[in-house]
C-alpha cells in the first residue's frame, strides 16, 4: 500500500469549479493525505519541519494546482524554496526523498492542441513542467507524467465530474501500486493509462 500526499494549491478555491470536484472525490480516501497549502499558510509562512515530516510519511507526492501562467501558484514556489533544503532533499548528504514518486495534477484553460509546437502556447505541457521534473530529479525522486485536465473554460459540470472520477481512479491505482514502470514510460499524461469515460464531450 502506497501512501499519497496531495499538496494542494489554489488561491481562490472557493471560485474553482474543476478542483472543487476533484478534491471532493479524493479528499476522504484511505491512504491519502489532502494538504491544503493556502488554507494552512495564508501568510505563506510555511512550517518547514512539518512539511518535511509529511514528505517522509508518504510514498507518492502530488502537486495539485491550476496551471497559472504555465506554472504553479506562488505558494508552490515558496514551498519548493523552503522545504527542499540542501543536505536534506538534495546535495551530498540529502537523500531523504530518494525513491519517492512525484507528479503534477493540473487544470488548464487551453486545449491539448494549443500545447504543441504549432499551437498557441508553442510548447507541450511536459516541456513547461521541466523545472518540476528537474527538481524531482535533483532530489532523487521519480518524476511521473502529469495528470492534466484541458480546456477547463469550456467544460460542463458533467465533464468535470467525469475527469474527477478519472483522477479518483488514478489515485486508487497508485495506492495499490497497480501501475508498472513500463506503463509510466509509455504515456505523456497519466490520464492515458485510464479508460476515458465515453460521455466526455470535448
Amino acid at each position: 500500500m502506497a501512501k499519497i500526499l496531495i499538496l494542494f494549491a489554489h488561491p481562490v478555491f472557493e471560485k474553482s469549479r474543476v478542483h472543487k470536484r476533484m478534491v471532493n472525490h479524493v479528499r476522504q480516501l484511505e491512504h491519502i493525505s489532502f494538504h491544503d497549502l493556502y488554507e494552512t499558510y495564508p501568510d505563506l509562512d510555511i512550517d518547514i519541519k512539518k512539511e518535511q515530516q509529511l514528505l517522509l510519511e508518504h510514498d507518492v507526492i502530488i502537486w495539485q494546482h491550476p496551471f497559472y501562467w504555465y506554472s504553479a501558484p506562488a505558494i508552490i514556489k515558496q514551498w519548493l524554496d523552503l522545504v527542499l533544503e540542501h543536505n536534506w532533499a538534495y546535495g551530498a548528504k540529502g537523500k531523504m526523498l530518494t525513491g519517492k514518486k512525484i507528479f503534477n495534477a493540473i487544470s488548464c484553460g487551453g486545449s491539448e492542441e494549443a500545447y504543441n509546437e504549432r499551437g498557441r502556447n508553442r510548447y507541450t505541457i511536459p516541456q513547461f513542467l521541466a523545472p518540476f521534473e528537474q527538481t524531482a530529479h535533483l532530489c532523487n525522486m521519480q518524476y511521473l507524467p502529469p495528470f492534466v485536465i484541458h480546456g477547463t473554460h469550456r467544460l460542463s459540470e458533467a465533464d468535470i465530474e467525469l475527469h474527477s472520477i478519472q483522477y479518483l481512479q488514478l489515485l486508487v491505482a497508485l495506492t495499490h501500486d497497480r501501475i508498472s514502470e513500463e506503463e509510466y514510460r509509455s504515456v505523456t499524461y497519466l490520464n492515458d493509462l485510464l479508460p476515458v469515460p465515453e460521455q466526455v464531450q470535448s
Binding site: 488561491p11 481562490v12 471560485k15 497559472y68 484553460g109 480546456g151 473554460h153 469550456r154
Partner: peptide, 12 residues
C-alpha cells in the same frame, strides 16, 4: 485569478 472573462471568451 478570476476566470469569468476567460470562460466568456471561450464561449463555455
Amino acid at each position: 485569478w478570476d476566470e469569468e472573462s476567460l470562460i466568456a471568451d471561450a464561449g463555455g
